[in-house]
């Protein structure tokens, strides 16, 4: 198949970007979306053009490095990561618009590469359990109800790709933050820091310039790992609880 892509090209953080159109020929429908970009980049290199910069690493949908907005949808038309999207999801002759995650808290570094360091700083503000190495008790001393463990896992499946922010009309990072609050808040080991965690993480989230949640639900719909929306309600409950105790 032959397709046309319109790609956001931006030399660096300071320069202004624009959409640039390229044709890609002989695309196989078994190619992954990123392999299609690889092919385009090989073409660009051989014609002395600058290859398109995009983040990617594991290419098996787990590292969270890749992610672009395809035709206005974070990770494209399938609910999966960009690396797991295949060209068979598009028609011959399609025009595909490719843009970086757009968010105030995710400044563009180059082309389709954005800086997601804000996510790491949110984790630094409380997204952990303080368990100094060597201090742990025997693992089976504290049973965890299977239901809680399963739900904690469901939220812990977040890969930190940032699709939730890109899809959210408000550029909010609430789903990412809530996933971690839920993961750790459901485990007995996470209880001692539960109040300080939610207050610290939400403060950092707001400080980074993410938007406020208005419960539209686009984040969950775009999430390649299916992080459930009720995590946000859980975050709000924890936050209200912490505020009621005067922990802010």
């Amino acid at each position: 198949m032959n397709i046309t892509v319109r790609v956001w090209r931006q030399k660096n953080a300071e320069s202004k970007g624009k959409m640039v159109t390229y044709g890609v020929e002989n695309v196989s429908e078994d190619m992954s979306f990123l392999e299609m970009l690889d092919v385009l980049n090989e073409q660009l290199t051989l014609t002395d053009d600058d290859p398109i910069a995009f983040d990617h690493d594991c290419r098996e949908g787990i590292c969270g490095a890749c992610g672009v907005v395809i035709n206005g949808q974070a990770h494209g038309p399938q609910v999966t990561t960009t690396c797991q999207l295949h060209m068979r999801s598009f028609e011959d002759g399609a025009v595909i618009d490719i843009e970086p995650w757009r968010a105030g808290a995710f400044p563009v570094i180059k082309d389709l590469v954005v800086d997601r360091g804000a996510f790491d700083r949110i984790i630094q503000a409380g997204g952990f359990i303080s368990a100094p190495t060597g201090s742990a008790v025997e693992a089976n001393n504290i049973p965890v109800p299977k239901d809680n463990a399963d739900h904690a896992f469901e939220s812990a499946a977040c890969i930190g790709c940032g699709a939730c922010v890109a899809a959210c009309p408000n550029g909010s990072g609430m789903l990412f933050t809530a996933a971690k609050i839920t993961h750790l808040g459901l485990l007995p080991q996470g209880q001692p820091e539960r109040d300080s965690r939610v207050v610290g993480m939400v403060e950092q989230h707001d400080h980074e310039g993410f938007g406020g949640c208005t419960n539209i639900g686009e984040c969950t719909a775009a999430c390649p790992k299916g992080i459930p929306l009720d995590t946000i309600s859980r975050l709000n409950r924890d936050l209200l609880g912490a505020l009621a105790k005067g922990k802010a």
């Binding site: 368990a131 742990a136 025997e138 299977k146 463990a149 904690a152 812990a156 485990l187 080991q189």
Partner: peptide
């Protein structure tokens, strides 16, 4: 020790109905 350490950090290992690993 690794399993103890990871559980203490909140790694959600699979569990049985009794709550044990």
């Amino acid at each position: 020790n690794i399993i103890d350490q990871c559980v203490a950090q909140g790694v959600p290992f699979a569990r049985e109905y009794g709550g044990l690993l």
